[in-house]
Design a protein around this nucleic acid. Structure first.
Lengths: 199, 199
DNA sequence: CCCTCTTTCTACCATATGGTAGAGAGCGAT
DNA sequence: ATCGCTCTCTACCATATGGTAGAAAGAGGG
């Protein structure tokens, strides 16, 4: 075949993120993925020896991508906690809205086997630690509302991924997915979180 | 048979909430449910003619239960928006922690067919409308931070269900599911949301 | 030209799963 | 007793799905 090395593999990963993230792991068959990519099921099984290993690869790649996005946002923001939070929201919301499945996949983790969940947790752990330490320090400095920094991280995460992964909820409050609606969503989410975090 | 009328049916519904809510609809087989209840698969299919109709019944019952809990909480709280929010959090968090699958099921809705999602949305719509109107009114009266009331409802919902349905995230921040941990979670969640809503 | 390596596909297979058909068991009414 | 109703079960079936075996088809080196 003519395709450049890795192209098929990458396409499979991409399609898998979308499908697993939107419908859930077990609701997606290898045939579904193959159909989206435009290959035979066996090609999928050639690049990933089993559905389970495909999932692992998908999770790992997603974690890496998201980590990079967040890392860049934090780095480019001024050294002020609220500004950084705002930057992260902005950075995460863009890919999240363009590909809703991304955060959907993150959420899917809680439904998977403890092994998969723990793998991801371990991978994300250093980031979480850093975030918690940072928040703790800024709280002590009076630049953030004093609270349990760990739970604040979890709550912020819950708010952002929650709002980004539940189109149903947004439709229930008659929100519309237009450009204007998106801008409004972003600004409301930011205000909401900043209000929750401000001293 | 001797069993009181409806007992089997209720057991099936209960087990289905737990299984669908924790593992996801398509990851649960009728045999799984039957095994938990302690009957044959055919008994499940006797009470609910298909897996799909079982799901519908499960969703409807869950919606009714949750609505009752929230309704009662709002009614019993003083007529002050922040107190009401606090009461609702308290009321929702109790069943949510005891049966994590409850809110997990609510979340599952976004992965299901548009028909199921719309059914639920329609059912919940009046509550949402009332909540939005109430918030709008209280914002105008200066008792809540002024914002888009619809999105505030969605964001609050996202925060609560997010934190209640993602044990993985909580474990990642080293939260422990003890009685003390639970109390702390509730108080931090309340503080977080109240801070986000206060004028 | 041919050998080998990589990549993809066709042909199957075993199992799991949703669902159908119908039998049997308890029980109240006639 | 027996008829009928409710409820649960055993026996099957068709299909979908994850996975195996191995053939074909290019591409590059000798």
């Amino acid at each position: 075949m003519v395709t450049r090395k890795g192209t098929t593999r990458a396409s499979i990963l991409e399609a898998s993120v979308d499908l697993f993230g939107s419908r859930g792991f077990s609701a997606v068959s290898l045939d579904d993925i193959a159909a989206v990519v435009g290959v035979a099921k066996q090609t999928v099984l050639y690049w990933f020896p089993s559905k389970d290993e495909l999932l692992e690869a998908v999770l790992e790649q997603t974690a890496i991508e998201l980590a990079a996005v967040i890392e860049a946002a934090v780095r480019s923001a001024p050294d002020e906690p609220l500004a950084r939070v705002e930057a992260v929201i902005k950075a995460v919301l863009r890919p999240a809205v363009r590909r809703p499945a991304l955060l959907g996949l993150v959420r899917e983790v809680s439904r998977l086997s403890p092994e998969h969940a723990e793998r991801l947790t371990t991978q994300v752990q250093p980031f979480v630690r850093r975030a918690i330490d940072y928040l703790a320090q800024e709280m002590q400095a009076g630049r953030l509302r004093t609270a349990d920094p760990g739970l604040v991280v979890a709550l912020s995460y819950a708010t952002v991924t929650g709002i980004a992964t539940e189109p149903t909820a947004l439709r229930a409050v008659e929100w519309e997915a237009t450009t204007a609606g998106l801008r409004r969503l972003r600004s409301e989410l930011t205000e909401f979180l900043l209000a929750a975090l401000r001293p």
